[in-house]
Write a protein that binds this DNA or RNA. Structure first.
Length: 296
DNA sequence: CTCCAGGGATGAT
DNA sequence: ATCATCCATGGA
């Protein structure tokens, strides 16, 4: 089994994979198994080096691109993390989160998988989003590996678009099934061309995404941030809303979603997506659920 | 058991 | 434009 190394400075693999960006990586001994697009891999971090083994598909076919470059791109090892952190605002809340999230990078995920999993994320805890991803991959994905660690690759839009709403409801999606199916059909037909949307400016891209069933401002911003390299995108979920209202405004002040988005754009700036991810992860990992202050 | 989760679509003000 | 309500499911 061939293995290779990838240099990774200012990077924390476990922290990054546990930060709620991606939902399919699983701990396997000292490393993690998962997939990057169609490539299934086992990745273990030792210091500043990633040790990578590929989990071969049962029928390996055509020529394949070099994996080291794919790894580096997926984990965004080229992001100038020190520069990005230095660009974040110098307020106490932000700096506490920055200190807590050293080595956390915003990954570059495949567009369809990212879009699909965040459609399933609405009103779901991270643990259950992972469960839904698991069942979708198990039932409808393509399997790599014969024995030992198996990896099931996330099903394509064509695959999911060919299913019925009941097939998806049976995976625990609830009311999200209809939306995922409808969006999968649009992507599969080419009516929604996720790849070509790369070229669009932020506002146009967000509008395209929000026109898809099951996609509103929050999910659109997640997909922009995690799959389109739009580091300004600032998704506001219940956690982030709590942090913003509690730490950046007075507790019982009323703000519209629009006002909140305007504030984040101005205060957190060009790397707002990193700010958001650090605030999110810090809050989620350090706030005891019972003691979490209730807003509203 | 209850409470709530990386929200969105819809219809009423 | 903003708000209320509903939508399914399961982790904690």
């Amino acid at each position: 089994m061939k293995s290779f190394e990838v240099a990774a400075h200012d990077f924390d693999l476990a922290l990054t994979l546990d930060s709620g960006q991606t939902f399919h990586w699983e701990k396997e001994g000292p490393g993690f198994v998962g997939a990057i697009g169609e490539r299934a891999v086992n990745v273990e971090q030792r210091g500043n080096v990633l040790h990578v083994r590929e989990v071969e598909p049962s029928s390996s076919g055509s020529q394949r691109a070099a994996l080291p470059g794919i790894i580096a791109r997926y984990f965004a090892l080229d992001h100038p993390l020190a520069e990005i952190c230095a660009s974040l605002p110098d307020d106490p809340t932000m700096q506490a989160a920055v200190g807590y999230c050293r080595g956390l990078r915003i990954m570059r995920q495949p567009r369809w998988e990212c879009l699909a999993t965040f459609i399933t994320s609405s009103m779901k805890q991270v643990a259950h989003i992972r469960q839904i991803s698991f069942v979708l991959r198990k039932r409808f994905g393509t399997r790599h590996g014969i024995r030992g660690a198996q990896v099931d690759i996330f099903p394509s839009a064509g695959k999911l678009g060919g299913l019925t709403e009941k097939d998806l409801r049976d995976c625990g999606l609830g009311y999200r099934a209809k939306n995922l199916l409808a969006t999968a059909e649009r992507v599969a037909s080419g009516e929604a061309d996720l790849e070509s949307w790369r070229a669009l400016p932020d506002d146009d891209l967000r509008a395209k995404l929000c026109a898809l069933p099951g996609v509103g401002p929050k999910v659109a911003n997640c997909v922009m941030l995690f799959a389109y390299e739009r580091l300004r995108a600032f998704p506001i979920d219940v956690w982030i809303e709590r942090v913003l209202l509690q730490k950046y405004f007075s507790p019982r002040r009323r703000l519209t979603a629009r006002q909140l988005q305007e504030f984040t754009a101005k205060h957190f700036g060009e790397n707002g997506g990193y700010a958001q991810q650090y605030l999110f992860h810090h809050a989620r990992k350090t706030t005891p659920r019972r003691l979490s202050p209730r807003v509203r």
